[in-house]
Design a protein around this nucleic acid. Structure first.
Length: 221
DNA sequence: ACCCAGGCGCATG
DNA sequence: CATGCGCATGGG
């Protein structure tokens, strides 16, 4: 997939990104992970841009905005009533418990942070793992609708697997193949590549959970 | 006029 | 416990 699609460079965390956007990319990733819940990324970009224009890409600002203003800002990303509340919840949590210091927040092991995130209303397993992997550089493999679709149609696992079971399959397989210090970049790249693969060759159609992958899709694999 | 998108929480049986 | 449903927008 890497040969076919090239690097996906999702959420690059580097100095350059920080300079250009003037906000902590880790916080943007946290916000983006919530805004993209069952939503096209193009819509999330519109919402992020509006937040950036209003200097509302920090935990402090979001925690202090009125709910009404926040809903208006993120309106293009859909589900804005629930998502505005969810952004408030995570921002207030980071502010009150960690003084909005993300280095402090991420300075613990992944399972601890994961449990803490799952306790917040509006953060489920995928959102938690996306935050851990792409904002925290923590080894948390992300399972999403695309990953699940490909896994079912190959098939890689039984079709009744839970989130944790499917994640376990990927983690065990990858841990055997890569040294520990390579897992984070491998998780980041592989997840992004599977999304790209599914977008190109494995789009959702009604009652298509068992339909075979196309030949061109298998060729890439 | 449809269908789809990088889920989640809550209400039912 | 496990499905089902509502949430809302913009692009194909």
């Amino acid at each position: 997939m890497l040969n076919h699609f090239g690097h996906q460079h999702w959420w690059p965390i580097n100095e350059q990104y920080h300079e250009i956007h003037g906000s902590d990319p880790r916080f943007e990733i946290i916000i983006g992970a919530i805004l993209t819940q069952n939503t096209a990324w193009s819509n999330v970009e519109k919402a992020l841009e509006r937040l950036r224009e209003h200097h509302a890409l920090t935990a402090e600002s979001i925690a202090h905005l009125t709910l009404r203003t926040l809903k208006n800002l993120i309106q293009p990303s859909g589900f804005f009533n629930q998502k505005a509340q969810r952004l408030k919840t995570i921002s207030s949590h980071l502010l009150q418990e960690y003084q909005a210091n993300l280095t402090f927040f991420f300075s613990r092991d992944a399972p601890t942070i994961r449990r803490e995130l799952l306790d917040l209303n509006g953060i489920g397993p995928e959102t938690a793992d996306s935050i851990l992997l792409y904002a925290g550089d923590k080894p948390a493999f992300v399972i999403d609708a695309y990953t699940r679709r490909i896994s079912r149609r190959l098939p890689l696992t039984a079709s009744t697997e839970s989130y944790d079971e499917l994640q376990g399959f990927f983690v065990e397989t990858l841990q055997k193949r890569y040294p520990k210090d390579q897992l984070v970049p491998v998780y980041q790249e592989l997840h992004a590549l599977m999304v790209e693969l599914a977008k190109n060759y494995c789009r959702a159609t009604p009652r298509c959970d068992q339909c075979p992958l196309t030949r061109s899709c298998k060729k890439v694999l």
